[in-house]
Design a protein around this nucleic acid. Structure first.
Lengths: 231, 231
DNA sequence: CGGCATGTTGAGTCAATTCAACAGCAGTGG
DNA sequence: CCACTGCTGTTGAATTGACTCAACATGCCG
């Protein structure tokens, strides 16, 4: 693993319970709490690889700030991004000993991480830890099922509409979203070319459904209309 | 659930351990054994729905004989099949209370099933049961990740090559496979039309890479060449 | 044997891609 | 401060792989 910055290990599981009690959905915290393992922090630079496909799976990650893409490549370089991970999201849980995807920082990114080894020890005795790990895998599966429908059967415009609604839901603040990823990343997520993505966004802008303040700063002006477009 | 035939509940978990000891990979048996719940048998007719998207998730299924497709629909009828389930496969484990896919019998199909309610009771106390359920979900996720790459980035011929190798691996006997599904099902699995699937298969036949004895009886004649075609 | 499902093949179309040019902007250094 | 450079994004024009529509072939089941 090629980490650039190592901010000293900071968060001890024993400190967390009361702080995090208000966030029942935070599985990572729940796992850390139950398993009583130490979570460290690491930072990665923009475009830096966090782990590669086929590498041993040693850590579970939660994004503190930044954004991460996980993807698979074909031999000739065609790329399919499976998911974008945003602050609060957990990634890197490939059950089995090897990662099945590559993970890269989209922007400078800081993560919390716990060694899998510790998790497994905790999971062996504590059912709740195992259940939480299962829940994370189940969420990934749910997303993948939805995404297969998009990739297999939706038109370009429907894919872009779905993407915008997903990102709006996950990262909009004050009606505005700041996309961390470039047009090529969006294309590789949606199974389209970057030009097709750009054309679809321009059309939505022309139709008044969204508004750009810059290429990556987008405000949705008509979510309902966009919903009908996602098919 | 609209089941046509109810063959009397037969298999009791307590009978299984020794019979199944030779199949370590059979998670269903392991789960049934650990949780000491009763597994029943049911049969479904060709094209009969086993459960629908959005319905409460009440059972976990294992195919004894036959084949099942699980899919999602768009409002205008476009369909994406997520997976084909063949004898020995487990399906229906949508964590959470509702099914996220519809399941239908492709041919007349017999399944073993256990009530989720019983599983959950067993899983609450027995870590091994939870781990096995997690493993099933993880396998589904792995397949979905591979399939997203196919749907987002592979050409029609590459998709068909991948499909043939998958089915050959899973159901070939004596170098021959008997596909249970029609061309439309294959198309809806691969994100293609049935005509495109048919054309690709014909081309592979012309090139001597496969041989038909009937439309659904296929023997691969050159797996290595097919492997290079799946990209 | 007839009728309907399923599968194949051909011809024309089209949505998305490829290739190409240019615009915008951020960072760099003279 | 502004030209220069590289990167990202947009737009246009031509191409193409897969789709649609159509006709026909095959085969299974009653």
């Amino acid at each position: 693993m090629h980490t650039q910055t190592i901010t000293a290990p900071t968060v001890n599981a024993l400190d967390i319970p009361h702080v995090m009690a208000a966030e029942p959905a935070d599985q990572f915290s729940a796992i850390v709490r139950c398993s009583r393992v130490v979570a460290s922090e690491f930072s990665y630079n923009k475009d830096e690889e966090i782990y590669g496909e086929g590498e041993p799976s040693e850590y579970l990650y939660q994004i503190i700030s930044g954004a991460v893409r996980t993807y698979k490549l074909l031999s000739d370089g065609r790329r399919q991004i499976s998911a974008f991970h945003l602050p609060g999201d957990v990634f890197g849980l490939d059950p089995g000993s090897e990662h099945r995807l590559t993970a890269e920082a989209i922007t400078n990114t800081t993560v919390r991480l716990v060694p899998r080894r510790n998790l497994e020890k905790a999971a062996a005795s504590n059912v709740q830890v195992t259940r939480n790990l299962w829940t994370i895998t189940a969420s990934d599966l749910r997303h993948a099922e939805d995404h297969m429908l998009l990739l297999g059967r939706k038109t370009a415009m429907e894919r872009v509409a779905t993407f915008l609604l997903e990102m709006d839901r996950r990262l909009a603040r004050a009606g505005m979203m700041a996309l961390p990823m470039c047009r090529r990343d969006i294309g590789d997520y949606l199974g389209l070319t970057l030009e097709t993505v750009s054309r679809a966004l321009s059309q939505l802008n022309d139709e008044g459904i969204l508004m750009f303040s810059s290429a990556r700063q987008i405000a949705l002006r008509n979510r309902q209309r966009l919903s009908t477009m996602e098919a």
